[in-house]
C-alpha cells in the first residue's frame, strides 16, 4: 500500500530529517494551525458556576499571569502537534508526541483547582510512563529496518516492521493522549479557559490520527 493518504505534494529534505505533506497530513496540519491562531488571539471565557437553590451565580476569572502562562503552553502544544503532523521521521514523531504530553500538563498546571491539579498529575504519570513504549517502538523500528524515514518505509523496499514495534507506538500514543482510555485526561477538561484546554484534546486527537497513518506504512 504505497498510496496511503494520497500522493505527497511536497517533500522537504534536510539529509535524513524530512518533512512532507500529503492531503491527509496537510488537513491535520491546517487544523492545528487554525486552533493555534485561535489560542494566540482569543481571551479565555469566564466559566459560570451556579449556586444551587438560588438565583446566584459566580464566574471564575483567570488572572493575567495565569493566562499568559497557559497561552504560552497552549501555543507550544499547537507547535508540537503541527510538528508531529508534518514530520517524516519516526523518532521525531515520538519526540513531538512526548512534547505534547508535557505541554498538556502545562496547560492545566496553573489552574488552582485541586481537582484539576490532581487529574493533571495522574495524567502526567501515565504520559511519562507512555514514553517507554513510544521510544521503545521507534528504536525497534530503527533496529528492524535500519531507517526511521517514513518515505523509505512507504516505498516498501525495506524489511517488514515487526508487529511489536507498531503495537508499542500505538500504545505510547494512547498513553500520551487518548481521553476515553483513562479518566484523568477527561477530568482535565473541566478546567476553565476553553481556548487553551481545547488544545489538549485537539493535540491528542491529531496525534492519534497521525499514528494511524504511520502504523500503516511499511
Amino acid at each position: 500500500m504505497t498510496n496511503l493518504a494520497g500522493v505527497p505534494y511536497y517533500i522537504l529534505e534536510f539529509g535524513d530529517e524530512l518533512v512532507y505533506f500529503t492531503p491527509y497530513t496537510i488537513t491535520l496540519f491546517l487544523l492545528a494551525l487554525t486552533f493555534t491562531i485561535f489560542v494566540l488571539i482569543s481571551m479565555p471565557e469566564r466559566q459560570v458556576d451556579i449556586a444551587f437553590g438560588g438565583d446566584a451565580y459566580t464566574t471564575k476569572v483567570i488572572s493575567v499571569s495565569e493566562m499568559r502562562f497557559r497561552r504560552f503552553m497552549a501555543i507550544a502544544c499547537g507547535l508540537a502537534s503541527m510538528g508531529a503532523m508534518v514530520t517524516g521521521d519516526i523518532f521525531n514523531f515520538t519526540l513531538f508526541t512526548a512534547m505534547v504530553g508535557i505541554t498538556n500538563v502545562g496547560i492545566v498546571a496553573a489552574v488552582k483547582s485541586p481537582h484539576v491539579q490532581n487529574a493533571a498529575y495522574q495524567y502526567g504519570l501515565v504520559a511519562l510512563s507512555a514514553t517507554v513504549p513510544l521510544f521503545g517502538g521507534a528504536a525497534i523500528y530503527a533496529a528492524a529496518t535500519g531507517s526511521l524515514s517514513m518515505i523509505e518505509l512507504a516505498k516498501g523496499a525495506l524489511p517488514a516492521v515487526p508487529f511489536v514495534a507498531k503495537a508499542f507506538l500505538v500504545l505510547g500514543v494512547i498513553g500520551e493522549g487518548m481521553a476515553p482510555f483513562y479518566a484523568a485526561k477527561a477530568e482535565m477538561f473541566r478546567a476553565p479557559g476553553a481556548p487553551y484546554v481545547i488544545m489538549c484534546s485537539l493535540s491528542s486527537l491529531l496525534i492519534f490520527l497521525r499514528v494511524i497513518e504511520v502504523v500503516m506504512l511499511g
Binding site: 519526540l95 500538563v105 502545562g106 498546571a109 498529575y121 511519562l128
Partner: peptide, 26 residues
C-alpha cells in the same frame, strides 16, 4: 542510538521537572 538517547533523555527530564512542579503546587 547515541543521537536518539540525548533527546529522549531531555524529554524525560523535562517531563519529570513539570510533574515535580505540579506535585509541589498540588
Amino acid at each position: 542510538a547515541e543521537a536518539l538517547i540525548l533527546p529522549g533523555l531531555t524529554v524525560g527530564i523535562a517531563e519529570q521537572l513539570a510533574l515535580s512542579q505540579i506535585y509541589c503546587t498540588k
